[in-house]
Design a protein around this nucleic acid. Structure first.
Lengths: 126, 126
DNA sequence: TTGTTCGTACGAAATTTTTCCTACCTTTGT
DNA sequence: ACAAAGGTAGGAAAAATTTCGTACGAACAA
């Protein structure tokens, strides 16, 4: 993995990962709903660039091109998370989680969820 | 908190947080040791800009100015982590931790560390 | 004293990322 | 047929970030 999506590229990838292959129009609408105001041609341009970079591919058989992510969600996020942990917490995952637990915005539900995950993990790795 | 350090700014902040108030020379040396080749004047410029932005302040009483972080480590990292979780995992911390657990690079030690953290947390919040 | 080293200031340039204008083509509705 | 709506392509510009050259003063060593 040598591909590091920029902030805006990641926004687009999220839409495609979440909703599957989509037109530019669809992605642009989602961004405007969920994120911020952005012109159609800006999104178009970015997605074209992403296709050049081999981050996406597209089906041009119809006039409305369908864009398809070429990089896999889990793999990409794992890569980005690893970089984040390295940069911010000197590679220590537990430091990150400690920060998470100290964060007021992390809800009780999230925390019991965390505990369940860890139990599950232990069970499978006993 | 409205201050969002850039990638390079964060590198500088990490040095200052870790080593305390420092000269440009010191920070630049650390960056070259730990990160990548970068000219002295580049680091200088960046730290001057950060001072303008009120991210740092400096003691100019000596010729070698001493730069001091104005934003707090924990608070800043919490903010950045929250944004990361929002952007990448739609705000779900447990999704992030799940990714962490699935990551081969997360060691067994890290995981028992995690479990200990969670136990500790529960004890204090029973 | 004099030259070398080390510091800051400043401006400009290079790079990266993001945004949008314009042109032009296709589809659709009247 | 024709206008309106919606599509892509491409270039340029804007914005954000990063890098560095040059000038010049202070400290220091010979």
């Amino acid at each position: 993995m040598e591909i590091e999506p920029t902030k805006s590229e990641l926004e687009i990838l999220q839409v495609l990962w979440h909703h599957g292959p989509s037109t530019v129009r669809f992605v642009n609408d989602k961004l405007n709903e969920q994120k911020r105001a952005v012109q159609y041609t800006s999104t178009l341009k970015l997605m074209q660039i992403m296709a050049e970079k081999q981050m996406l591919t597209r089906d041009e058989s119809q006039m409305k091109h369908i864009y398809i992510p070429l990089i896999e969600e889990g793999q990409t996020k794992e890569f980005l998370l690893e970089k984040f942990v390295d940069n911010m917490y000197n590679g220590s995952s537990s430091s990150l989680v400690m920060q998470l637990l100290g964060n007021k915005k992390t809800s009780k539900e999230e925390i019991s969820e965390l505990r369940a995950l860890l139990d599950e993990f232990d069970k499978n790795n006993a």
